[in-house]
Amino acid sequence: MVLKTNKKAKFENKRKLVTKVDPKSPISEQYRTIRTNIQFSSVDQEIHTLMVTSSGPGEGKSTTIANLAVTFAQQGKQVLLIDADMRKPTMQYTFNVSNTVGLTTVLTGQENLNRAVRPSDVDNLYILTSGPIPPNPSELLGSKAMKAFFEKAKEEFDMVLFDTPPVLAVTDAQILSNQCDGTILVVNSEKTEIDKATKSKELLVAAKANLLGVVLNNRRIDSKNQYYYYGTK
């Protein structure tokens, strides 16, 4: 039974990382389109730090940011993907890396960034998992240590991407959003309620986030019930 479960988990992770396993697919092309839109979204300032969030759980934010990270790495950029969802981290499963050290151990001074980062099996893409779940995620994200971490990460990598908790669940995303160059909100076409998406946007804007746009996830566009990802400014 365990073997079957592990096989299923590996299959699910491969399916989520479509830009890695099937880079020529229409879905991968949509992710590259989103990447291009991000790169052209700011005339005055190049995007170096990007945050992806959603209104609620299960809307596809972690899948979206993982695939975006792969597409940036495929451009030859040195990319750091950070699991800043310290409450329900998932990045260790997606990339099959250890979570014994990560963002929390770096912020609390137990480990330095270079030793906490893990290489992935995608060229140029590095992973920083959440680390052990702390009792005070919001305080860590708003700390002086986090500001210092930002500066260090930007020195070491071309692109730094943060996966955060949903906006309506906790304040973590709002705290982090005004520190990032840009923010993307993921909505699920079959799940996200309009009023919740609107409220999420209002909270991010109130937090002075640079909201670059919305990714509409799980939109059915043909009779074969295939799903594509669609980005809009």
Score class of each variant (00 low, 15 high):
residue 84 A to N: 12
residue 113 L to N: 00
residue 141 L to F: 09
residue 127 I to E: 12
residue 103 L to S: 01
residue 139 E to F: 11
residue 97 V to W: 02
residue 78 Q to L: 09
residue 153 A to T: 11
residue 138 S to C: 05
residue 140 L to R: 00
residue 129 T to P: 05
residue 138 S to N: 12
residue 156 E to F: 08
residue 82 I to P: 01
residue 147 K to L: 15
residue 139 E to V: 12
residue 46 E to I: 04
residue 87 R to V: 12
residue 70 V to Q: 11
residue 52 V to F: 08
residue 146 M to Q: 12
residue 146 M to A: 12
residue 57 P to R: 14
residue 74 Q to P: 01
residue 155 E to N: 15
residue 77 K to I: 08
residue 75 Q to E: 13
residue 46 E to N: 14
residue 151 E to L: 13
residue 90 T to R: 14
residue 108 T to H: 03
residue 159 M to H: 13
residue 53 T to H: 10
residue 100 T to C: 00
residue 80 L to D: 12
residue 66 A to L: 02
residue 56 G to N: 13
residue 99 N to P: 02
residue 160 V to L: 11
residue 131 G to A: 05
residue 65 I to E: 07
residue 49 T to E: 15
residue 86 M to D: 06
residue 152 K to V: 09
residue 109 G to L: 00
residue 63 T to L: 03
residue 96 N to E: 10
residue 142 G to E: 13
residue 144 K to I: 13
residue 114 N to H: 02
residue 114 N to M: 04
residue 136 N to Y: 00
residue 72 F to P: 00
residue 43 V to M: 13
residue 147 K to D: 15
residue 82 I to C: 09
residue 145 A to S: 14
residue 58 G to V: 08
residue 131 G to M: 05
residue 145 A to I: 11
residue 77 K to V: 07
residue 136 N to E: 08
residue 82 I to F: 08
residue 131 G to L: 06
residue 46 E to R: 10
residue 157 F to E: 13
residue 96 N to T: 06
residue 93 Y to D: 10
residue 77 K to R: 12
residue 107 L to I: 01
residue 89 P to M: 02
residue 49 T to A: 15
residue 157 F to I: 08
residue 46 E to C: 06
residue 126 Y to I: 00
residue 89 P to T: 07
residue 118 R to W: 00
residue 91 M to N: 04
residue 52 V to T: 15
residue 111 E to D: 13
residue 95 F to C: 04
residue 154 K to S: 15
residue 150 F to W: 15
residue 46 E to S: 14
residue 156 E to Y: 11
residue 103 L to C: 02
residue 51 M to L: 15
residue 72 F to C: 04
residue 150 F to N: 13
residue 93 Y to T: 10
residue 65 I to P: 14
residue 138 S to F: 03
residue 90 T to E: 13
residue 61 K to N: 10
residue 150 F to R: 11
residue 72 F to H: 10
residue 55 S to H: 01
residue 98 S to E: 01
residue 53 T to W: 11
residue 137 P to W: 09
residue 67 N to H: 12
residue 74 Q to G: 08
residue 68 L to Y: 03
residue 111 E to Y: 07
residue 140 L to W: 04
residue 51 M to P: 00
residue 119 P to F: 09
residue 55 S to G: 15
residue 148 A to T: 13
residue 92 Q to V: 08
residue 92 Q to D: 14
residue 63 T to R: 03
residue 71 T to S: 08
residue 106 V to C: 01
residue 64 T to R: 04
residue 147 K to H: 14
residue 66 A to Q: 06
residue 49 T to G: 13
residue 108 T to Y: 05
residue 112 N to I: 08
residue 148 A to M: 11
residue 141 L to C: 01
residue 95 F to M: 08
residue 144 K to P: 11
residue 62 S to E: 12
residue 113 L to F: 00
residue 130 S to K: 09
residue 85 D to G: 10
residue 44 D to E: 14
residue 112 N to G: 01
residue 43 V to Y: 15
residue 141 L to H: 05
residue 135 P to Y: 08
residue 44 D to C: 03
residue 149 F to Y: 09
residue 47 I to N: 14
residue 47 I to P: 10
residue 107 L to C: 07
residue 154 K to V: 15
residue 66 A to S: 15
residue 58 G to A: 09
residue 124 N to R: 05
residue 133 I to G: 02
